[in-house]
Computed example of a mutant assay.
Amino acid sequence: MDPVSLVVGGVLLAVGFVAGRLGRRRPSGPVTPQAVCSCGHPLSQHDPERNTCHAEVVRDTYNKRGRWAGHTWVACSCRQYIGPRPIDEVFAPRVLPPS
């Protein structure tokens, strides 16, 4: 083997090692998908009996002159959960408590 090919192979090995160290993906734990409504809140924040959303959202507030004065927390204006339904409600509707 000639020394030039050994140097080229060593350089390619080093470049591959550095590229692998810099470009590797960080392991992020298992991601569980969550059913979300169009308002951005999950099914757990919605009351199916009253058709209301219990979550709060940030709204900007302005003073009398029209200048920004900060944030306030107000109730979400979503009136019904329209996201994906749980699988048990699709195949068999709930029978308890009796209506």
Rank of each mutant, 00 (worst) to 15 (best):
M1F: 10
M1G: 11
D2V: 04
D2T: 04
D2N: 12
D2M: 02
P3N: 08
P3I: 12
P3V: 05
V4P: 04
V4M: 14
V4C: 08
S5P: 09
S5Q: 09
V8E: 12
G9P: 13
G9R: 06
G9T: 06
G10M: 06
L12Y: 06
L13R: 02
L13E: 08
V15I: 11
G16F: 08
G16P: 07
V18A: 12
A19I: 15
G20K: 08
G20W: 04
L22I: 06
G23E: 10
G23T: 05
R24F: 14
R24M: 11
R25Q: 14
P27D: 10
G29A: 13
P30M: 08
V31C: 15
V31S: 15
T32V: 15
T32K: 11
T32R: 12
P33R: 13
P33H: 09
V36R: 07
V36S: 03
V36D: 00
C37G: 01
S38Y: 02
G40C: 00
H41G: 04
P42E: 01
P42G: 03
L43Y: 05
Q45A: 15
D47Q: 02
D47L: 03
P48L: 00
P48F: 02
E49S: 11
R50S: 11
N51L: 13
T52W: 02
C53A: 03
H54M: 10
H54D: 10
E56N: 10
V57E: 01
V58G: 14
V58E: 12
T61R: 09
T61L: 07
Y62T: 04
K64I: 14
K64H: 13
K64R: 13
G66Q: 07
G66D: 08
W68F: 13
A69K: 07
G70D: 05
T72P: 06
W73N: 14
W73Y: 10
V74E: 07
C76P: 04
C76T: 01
S77V: 07
S77Y: 15
C78M: 00
R79K: 15
R79Q: 13
R79L: 12
Q80F: 12
Q80C: 08
Y81I: 02
P84E: 07
R85Y: 15
I87Y: 11
I87F: 11
E89H: 03
E89N: 06
V90W: 02
F91K: 09
F91G: 05
A92R: 09
R94Q: 14
L96T: 10
P98D: 13
